[in-house]
Write a protein that binds this DNA or RNA. Sequence first.
DNA 1: GCGGAAGTACTCGGATACCCACTGTCCGAGTAGGGAGGG
DNA 2: CCCTCCCTACTCGGACAGTGGGTATCCGAGTACTTCCGC
Lengths: 161, 161
Amino acid sequence: MNLKNQVEWALHCCSVMMGLPQGATLPAKVLAEFHGVPKEYLSKALQSLSQQGIVIGTLGPNGGYRLAKSPDEITFLDIVEAVEGKRSGFSCAEIRGNNPCLPKKHKAGKPCTIARYMWQADEAWRTSLRGVTLAELGRQLAEDVPAEVLSKSHEWLVARG
Amino acid sequence: MNLKNQVEWALHCCSVMMGLPQGATLPAKVLAEFHGVPKEYLSKALQSLSQQGIVIGTLGPNGGYRLAKSPDEITFLDIVEAVEGKRSGFSCAEIRGNNPCLPKKHKAGKPCTIARYMWQADEAWRTSLRGVTLAELGRQLAEDVPAEVLSKSHEWLVARG
DNA sequence: GCGGAAGTACTCGGATACCCACTGTCCGAGTAGGGAGGG
DNA sequence: CCCTCCCTACTCGGACAGTGGGTATCCGAGTACTTCCGC
């Protein structure tokens, strides 16, 4: 049940886009170089983010991506769902319906009890992700990463953006 | 990031094994018939449960599987982890290490900030699953499923076990 | 009639093919900027 | 000198192969029951 690598890449990309000056953009090529991942493949993740309205892609020279919303309006869940899809990790195949003792009358009452518990856990996962915004990530990064590295990275990105 | 079908099957199998008389066993063949799934493949899930000490497999005629512990000592998490593995769904590839602005000195301090948040969500998921025991599932099933269906299923299984 | 041993049928357990989705890559559509030419 | 038009180069966006894990299946190892034979 591994999440795709794209999820990790998308999160890191949003993280660096957060530090951009207002209106500035970063091309996928630069983001890929910065993270050491294949450019063409990373662009697929960015496309997903673009389709979900999390980032905005601009064409032409000096084009690229930038965040579509304020960092405190973008949660981890938004990014994860954009790349990974919104449906639950647990899919109920309704195998209880194969029970030979079940009357033909398709009761179709509540959803499967087991699935409910699994979805409940899934919701706990989503709630946890929903509680973390990009702004929060930015504050935490400022604590974890040396200021020098942050500023040098910032310059490196702006110079190439 | 879908979970395997095996997880669903394993949960359902544990659910029906819970109702067995003390010491009685259910062969994989019967469990497969009851749930309408391929026997040979289901047995792989049961093997995983067996290796984790959740169920006990008995060989020979009248052999089969039975729970290894009391239903209130078995959680959803035990079953899910037995089939799906214990490692987190999010794997950090440490792409932050590819940052060209990073000094050569490998700081290797805290783990990646982004990964920490993802693992935190993963832990919330596990905590939710850890809070549901088979006994709890049994109580909920007694509410959701008509008593007639439960008793007929019970008879059907005991007759073939 | 009783005990023991061999045979048998049934079970689990691991080893073996198949297939879809994630991974990785490519090329085309579209646009913004720059330069050349004319007024 | 300034405006307009065209061209180029760069960007994103969708379409195309390769590979690993999940899915499905098979056959062998091992055991408990049954049955048969000898005592």
